[in-house]
Nucleic acid binder design. Structure first.
Lengths: 332, 332
DNA sequence: CATCGAAACGTTTGCGCAATCGTTTTTTTC
DNA sequence: GAAAAAAACGATTGCGCAAACGTTTCGATG
């Protein structure tokens, strides 16, 4: 592997001249610049970013610790973050915490060892240890999706608005018995969406019996089971609200298994849009989360914070967008 | 930031003892081990992986340069690669080349600067410069999905088998006029699938007129336009084969815009499965690519190659799986 | 024409670590 | 009890680089 001093020797100049030419950190005569550049080209020199980072104590690297990178919602966020970072010359370490708090802490520490300039974290259900560690080690961090700690910058969807819009839509169609399929317990999003649902319904003067609220759905299979349970009630719901993309897939499976027609037999709607939702039946009415914006904003905030660790923290709630389709009808 | 010598000073031992305790690289008496470990804990020492890598000239890092990380197909592969690497203590740099050969080369060089131990690349349409660079710099690399250069280890789907299975299915249903919506020209996958289609049809004694073959679909919108063109033919196809997930979405859009029923008016099938495909209409018959296996195998091969740069290259074709649903009917 | 200052470049150090080489102390052996 | 061997640890170097500090050269100035 060639080094800067190999270049210096080959060009007959000092290492500092080569360094300054490459980094444009001080004036070097045009002839020497050309000489150095030609030599770099000739011997195929590639700077060693490790040595550079060690010296500068800054790596131009950020860590992305996401609870489930295969979820399309997070995929979109990851994509936006990568794009934004790439634009700023940063590069991203991608890690999947698999929603495991132990693993999450390990990964955060691992990223710290690698001296990332900052971390973007989609926290697990029990993130306390990881978050405390981040605070103690003074590592810049922004939280995405699950917003649970005001000691950090945070970016997510305005869940209250999302749920309220959906409830408004249902109530306008005279639905009173609405079942909700929530996500994993412990997640800030689950709690927020549940509370927002209760609040929105109460506001409309509609009571929400506990048996229409189903949380603890950690995957599509759980959501399918929960939906079956809802539909077996003496007084089953006339509409089902799926609180994210996974629970929606699970709910639709149950509905299909029961050979129910949407929206004739039951209305369905939820949070998270699908790219194909316009072209397949039933065409689901959904609230699209602004994944691009979330990712971009998260990267922005992190870069700001890396620049100024003492800036006060912000919590940013971005607005979801209603995609009104045909999966909800009038209540019987 | 604490260093190894701060630990040494605080513990009253030498830096080499601390180093050896942390890396278990030579015997140290139990008392000193405990002393060192306690001191590490007490002052919150976190090793600097940069300095370690600089010394060892190995980073435990691999680069992932993917042509479109938001595509669910690649998301799944990325997820599998990350999981496999994580298991082996490696960490992944994620980059999106956006199918741009210039950008691809830049990213490869950038990853090289950061001294990744190896690269997994989903090559762009014109990857020659990047690939030549990788060969010249002797950087371990494995190609995924688009297999175009036997100088590298390669992992992808058996596209011939995928297309043949689909064609068999269509021919069994007496289809003779089959339109195919191919992906971006230049991609190895596009070429392979086109040739496999021609071969499979010819084998069945069916002629394939050029106007039923539509390539140059770089996104869903192009695929929609191409599908419209196919359906406007004097003798339109009785079946449409979409060669990947993006073209499928585009094709379905066109079919919906024309208010055609699947499979009553037209049969549809393609490559790439969707998680929701069982629960929405039309329920598409698809060939699922083995994304998990591809990702895992790619990581395996890369790690092997990092261990032995002179090992001969392998090209691995993994078998796709037919998900037979109801989007194809008998030809009129 | 001595002096000063600026222009252009070189020498060297230290970032934090692994591991080579070296030293001291203890144990074994005959 | 002296020599050899083993056990346990320490001092130092070099990985490749940025940049602080130092040196040389040359034109400008009074």
């Amino acid at each position: 592997m060639t080094t800067i001093s190999a270049v210096a020797k080959a060009a007959g100049v000092s290492v500092s001249t080569v360094s300054h030419v490459l980094n444009k950190t001080r004036y070097v005569s045009p002839e020497k610049v050309k000489l150095v550049m030609d030599t770099v080209e000739a011997i195929g020199y590639i700077p060693n970013a490790l040595a550079r980072s060690l010296k500068l104590s800054s790596t131009g690297t950020i860590g992305l610790a996401i609870s489930a990178i295969s979820n399309p919602y997070f995929s979109d966020i990851i994509c936006a973050i990568e794009a934004e970072c790439s634009k700023r010359g940063l590069i991203v370490f991608l890690c999947d915490t698999q929603d495991d708090p132990d693993r999450e802490l390990e990964l955060v520490q691992h990223l710290h060892q690698r001296r990332v300039d900052g971390i973007i974290l989609a926290a697990s259900g029990d993130p306390k240890r990881s978050l405390d560690y981040l605070i103690e080690s003074d590592l810049p961090c922004v939280l995405v999706d699950r917003l649970s700690d005001s000691r950090f910058d945070q970016v997510g969807t305005d869940n209250v608005a999302a749920i309220r819009t959906l409830v408004d839509h249902l109530v306008a169609l005279r639905h009173k018995r609405v079942g909700i399929i929530l996500g994993q317990p412990g997640f800030a999003t689950t709690v927020e969406r549940m509370n927002a649902f209760r609040a929105a319904m109460t506001e409309k003067g509609i009571e929400v019996p506990d048996d229409l609220i189903s949380d603890s759905n950690n995957n599509t299979a759980d959501a399918t089971a929960s939906t079956h349970r809802l539909l077996e009630l003496k007084e089953p719901p006339t509409a089902i609200l799926a609180s994210n993309n996974l629970t929606m897939i699970g709910a639709m499976r149950a509905i299909r298994e029961r050979k129910l027609r949407v929206p004739a037999d039951i209305s369905v709607l939820g949070i998270d849009d699908f790219e194909w939702a316009d072209y397949f039946e039933p065409r689901l009415t959904l609230m699209a989360q602004p994944c691009d914006e979330i990712g971009r904003k998260a990267a922005d905030l992190l870069i700001e914070r890396i620049g100024n660790k003492r800036r006060p923290c912000q919590t940013v709630r971005l607005s979801p967008v209603l995609r009104l389709r045909e999966s909800c009808g009038e209540a019987a």
